[in-house]
């Protein structure tokens, strides 16, 4: 494994661990200040501005989501969603100066209210190198069932 691939792989595994552990605020710190979190709704979605998305969240909206997930009266988080994910097939799609685009595949198992749910798809991370290590400029999630009828998605994917 090349140095860069090993580096970004370690970053993605760390990120997955924070999300599985519901350590939202540490996860939020992984983003650049103008970083975006985007899950398109369709396979051919042209952009996130003129088309609805499953998620299109800047720092403000990500912060609101993290806060809500910890609210005592978040009824749909009684009990909270538990998750375990595997990130694999990691590949460096492009690398230029301090910006690298990383593709990966994820499987995510969720459990809440006696029910398991399987989610899966592709992650595409645009990472920027900073003084503190890699930071996420864009995390794009393409769920395989994004065009289907959805049950609610509350936590970060």
């Amino acid at each position: 494994m090349s140095g860069l691939l090993a580096e970004v792989s370690a970053f993605l595994f760390h990120e997955a661990r924070l999300l599985d552990a519901r350590r939202w605020h540490e996860w939020l710190e992984l983003f650049t200040p103008d970083g975006m979190y985007w899950a398109p709704l369709t396979h051919d979605q042209p952009d996130p501005v003129n088309h609805v998305s499953l998620f299109y969240e800047d720092a403000l909206l990500r912060d609101v989501r993290a806060r809500r997930l910890e609210e005592r009266r978040a009824w749909s988080q009684q009990p909270v969603t538990q998750a375990a994910r595997i990130v694999g097939n990691i590949i460096v799609l492009s690398a230029q100066d301090d910006v690298v685009v990383v593709g990966s595949t994820f499987h995510m198992l969720e459990w809440r209210r006696q029910e398991h749910r399987m989610l899966g798809g592709q992650y595409t991370h645009t990472l920027r190198r900073s003084g503190e290590g890699w930071r996420i400029a864009l995390k794009r999630i393409d769920l395989i069932n994004r065009e289907g009828v959805q049950d609610t998605l509350e936590t970060f994917l």
């Binding site: 403000l60 912060d63 609101v64 989501r65 806060r67 809500r68 609210e71 009266r73 978040a74 988080q77």
Partner: peptide, 9 residues
């Protein structure tokens, strides 16, 4: 929950 989160934000 979402009202509180938005107000805190």
């Amino acid at each position: 929950s979402s009202v509180n989160a938005a107000r805190a934000e």
